[in-house]
Write a protein that binds this DNA or RNA. Sequence first.
DNA 1: ACCACAACCTGGCCGC
DNA 2: TGCGGCCAGGTTGTGG
Length: 269
Amino acid sequence: MPELPEVETIRRELIPLVVGKKVQEITLFWPAVVARPTPDLFLQKAIGAQIKGVERRGKYLLWRLTPEGYLIVHLRMTGQLQWYSASPPPDKHTHLLIHLDDGQIHYRDVRKFGRWYWTTDPTEVVGHLGPEPLSSEWTAEEFARTLSRRRAPIKALLLDQRLVAGLGNIYADEALFVAGIHPLRAGNTLSLREIEQLHRAIRAVLEEALRAGGSTFSTYQRPNAQKGTYQQQHRVFRRTGRPCPVCGTPIEHTRVAGRSTHFCPRCQR
DNA sequence: ACCACAACCTGGCCGC
DNA sequence: TGCGGCCAGGTTGTGG
């Protein structure tokens, strides 16, 4: 579910709720959500630690702890973090519950794809990720160098987190539309000009989505149950058959790299 | 090295 | 109402 704008929104809202707080207790209802090290060690290391900060890398949230360590979570498709100042009973999809000084974080995940990690070295978990698209280190030149070696469809490449971290199905489709590039174009056939447009479009779309608090369909929720509104601004995503916002041609739908893909056949060549 | 695809889970929706 | 089939915002392992 959540892509970079949603995870970043969650991060920002989590900070005032959890930073400076101590992890008093963790209740682990479904141990398989802990990917590393082991459920027992995870609990042993995290319980009693104080949260010093919340960071983000791609779609991962990193809770920086003292004593030294990081609690890391990836929400995958349907993971949610919910803050409660009281102690409501966990529902049947709550797999992990963090008790803090003055409230609790409920981790819910209907599909159970999400994973938690504890590590002293975050690169063990996030080391495979490519550059952050909103950082100055990510340049069109570097992007072009990587794309020139790949002939998979550009849509599939945008979903490859080693290339650039944080894009998912929504923002890949939206960015390709803004850049005017057909999702099936092979990476190594894009001109430098097109790559520059795409580089710009990715940043513009992510920043726009961030301002809207992300996109909310059924399962993405922020810690305080607010919803993102960016879905109202989607140009192509899940708008099959509706008019392209630029030229009016009906938006088309296809499947690329096993993922649902939306584009304007006229604006995207 | 690269790429396509199944697998991991559950629930919602659609058609019969 | 019930059942089968398909779909879902992500990642990983397998096999070609």
